[in-house]
């Protein structure tokens, strides 16, 4: 079974919010997950891992402490969502040839969608690299060089993002469906459920839209 990208984004947004992300962060986490899944990369599984690890953790502990290089977190471990959002906010730095470096960021693949949006903004492809892995994107297409098949790992790495002049010509286009990891999907569902207010007789009476009968 496949999922529509809108389903993936909606589930991810609610799940991110359910673990305490701000609405604005949750929106971007969801779009990042959608972006990865559209490239047949494990966005849902990685989002589930990150949300599980950082469930209820304060943003200030896992976000870059400052925007001066290299980026580090107060807790010692950077969240890829907080770091990715900051990366995209600072995309103009890439345009001027600066690198953005992060230390000890987990699930680094989740940084790539944010780098992709940065690439769209500066109208130039960007490269994200860590360990043996090199990924290039112009915002739309992606090229992944992953000799040891480690791109989906959650472990923490040092990562660099920089502008490149040309994309690898073997870059692939996004697809219109996602084949999500079922376990990750269920975890997101559990987190998403936290955003629903428990029903009470009062809320049923006060809050609902329509009447009950349609026999007229």
């Amino acid at each position: 079974m496949t999922h529509s990208l809108n389903e993936i984004e909606a589930q991810s947004r609610k799940a991110a919010r359910g673990t305490g992300l701000s609405w604005g962060m949750a929106e971007e986490a969801a779009k990042a997950t959608r972006w990865l899944e559209s490239h047949q990369l494990p966005g849902v599984r990685l989002l589930a891992e990150v949300l599980t690890r950082n469930d209820g953790v304060a943003h200030a502990d896992i976000a870059p402490q400052t925007l001066d290089a290299p980026w580090t977190a107060r807790s010692g471990v950077l969240c890829p969502l907080a770091s990715g959002a900051a990366l995209n906010d600072c995309a103009d730095r890439l345009a001027t040839g600066h690198h953005i470096e992060m230390e000890d960021v987990t699930s680094p693949l989740l940084i790539v969608p944010f780098a992709a949006w940065a690439a769209l903004h500066i109208c130039s492809p960007v490269r994200v690299q860590w360990r043996d892995i090199r990924i290039e994107t112009d915002g739309y297409r992606i090229w992944v060089n992953d000799p040891k098949a480690q791109v989906g790992l959650a472990s923490k790495v040092a990562l660099t993002c920089s502008r490149v002049s040309e994309m690898n010509e073997n870059a692939s286009l996004p697809e219109l469906r996602g084949r999500v990891c079922p376990t990750g999907w269920d975890i997101l569902g559990t987190f998403a459920h936290r955003t629903y207010a428990p029903d009470t007789p009062e809320s049923r009476r006060l809050g609902a839209g329509a009447g009950v009968s349609d026999n007229d």
Binding site: G24, M25, E27, H59, A85, A86
Partner: peptide, 17 residues
């Protein structure tokens, strides 16, 4: 820059957008 403000105040991210 707003990027610095949002590092400290992610709760305003949706409103800035």
């Amino acid at each position: 820059p707003i990027a610095a403000f949002l590092l400290a105040h992610p709760e305003h991210r949706h409103s800035v957008r």
